[in-house]
Design a protein around this nucleic acid. Sequence first.
DNA 1: AGACTTAAGGTCAGTATTAGTCAAAGAAAG
DNA 2: CTTTCTTTGACTAATACTGACCTTAAGTCT
Lengths: 154, 154
Amino acid sequence: MSSLADHIEAYIKRMLRSSQTNSVELSRAQMADDFSCVPSQINYVLSTRFTLERGYIVESRRGGGGYIRIGHVQVDDSYAHAANLLKSIGSELDEKQMEDILAYLKDHHVITPRQLQLIRGIVQQEVGSIGQGKNVLRASLVRALLFLIIESES
Amino acid sequence: MSSLADHIEAYIKRMLRSSQTNSVELSRAQMADDFSCVPSQINYVLSTRFTLERGYIVESRRGGGGYIRIGHVQVDDSYAHAANLLKSIGSELDEKQMEDILAYLKDHHVITPRQLQLIRGIVQQEVGSIGQGKNVLRASLVRALLFLIIESES
DNA sequence: AGACTTAAGGTCAGTATTAGTCAAAGAAAG
DNA sequence: CTTTCTTTGACTAATACTGACCTTAAGTCT
C-alpha cells in the first residue's frame, strides 16, 4: 500500500495544489531521475491516475524543450453526478439512450434547452453521414459534447 | 514552453499584434543575431509555426536588401470564417490537420487556449480508445466540438 | 553590357534532445 | 492460485538545432 506510483501521484497533486494556475509543467526525465525510476513509469502514473475523466488534462511535447503539462479542473458538485453519468456511457449509445440522458441533464439544469437542441442536431448530422458504427460514433460524440459543456462551465 | 523556437515564435507574434497592418518585415540575419542562433533556425520557426494552414503568409527576397515579410490573415467576420473552415473538414482529419485548425482558431481568438486544451484532451481520449477509423472519428469530433463552441457564443 | 563582388535568404541532411509505446517480468491483492 | 496492478527497458517517434552548401539580387568595376 504505497507503491512508487502512489508517491509520484501524490507529489504531482501536491504541486498542483500549490500552483496558482491549477497546472504544472514537468520534465519526464527529471521526474524519473528524482524518483529513481525509468521514464515510462511517469507515463504509467499519468495514464492510470491523471485521466480526463478525473478532471485532468495532460499535454506533452517531445524534442528539445519538451515537457509534460498537467492541468486540473475542479468539477463542482452539481456537475459531479453529471460527470458520473458520462462515465456510464459505454462504447455504444442508441438514440433512445441518448434522449434519456439529454432529458435528464436538461431537467437537472446541467444543459440548457438550446444546448440540448444543438447536441441533437450535431449528433444527427454526424451520425447520418456514416454507414456503419452509428451507435459507436454517437457514444463518442455525446460523451465529448457533454464533457465540453460540463468542463466549460466549471 | 521554453525552447528557442518558442521564444522566436512569441516574439514574432508580439510584433504582429502591435503592428497596424498585420504584417511585419524582418531580417533573417538580424533575427538570428538577436537570438544567438544560426539563420536557418528562423526558417525552422517559420516553416513549423507560420504556415498558410494557420493563416500566415510568408514572403521573402534574397540578395542585397533582402527581407522576410510575415502577414497574418485577418477576416472581417471570424466566426463566419470559422464556420467555413469547419465545412472544409472532410470525412477524415489527421492530427496535424487538427492542430493547424486549432492553432488557427486560437490565433484568431475564436477559441480560448483552454478550449483548445479541452478539445485536444477529449479527442485524444475518444480517438485513443478505438482501433480503426481514427481519422474519421477525429473529423466528426472536431467538427462537433467546434460547432458547439461557435454556436454557443453567437 | 558582362564579369566580379557582396549581401542577403533557402535547403537539407545529420545530430541532439525529449517523450511515447508495448510487452514482458515481477509484486500485490483477492 | 489467479487476477490485477506495478515496474522495467528496448524500441519508436517527434521536435529542435546546426552547419555546409546552394540560390538570388544588387552593386561595382572595367
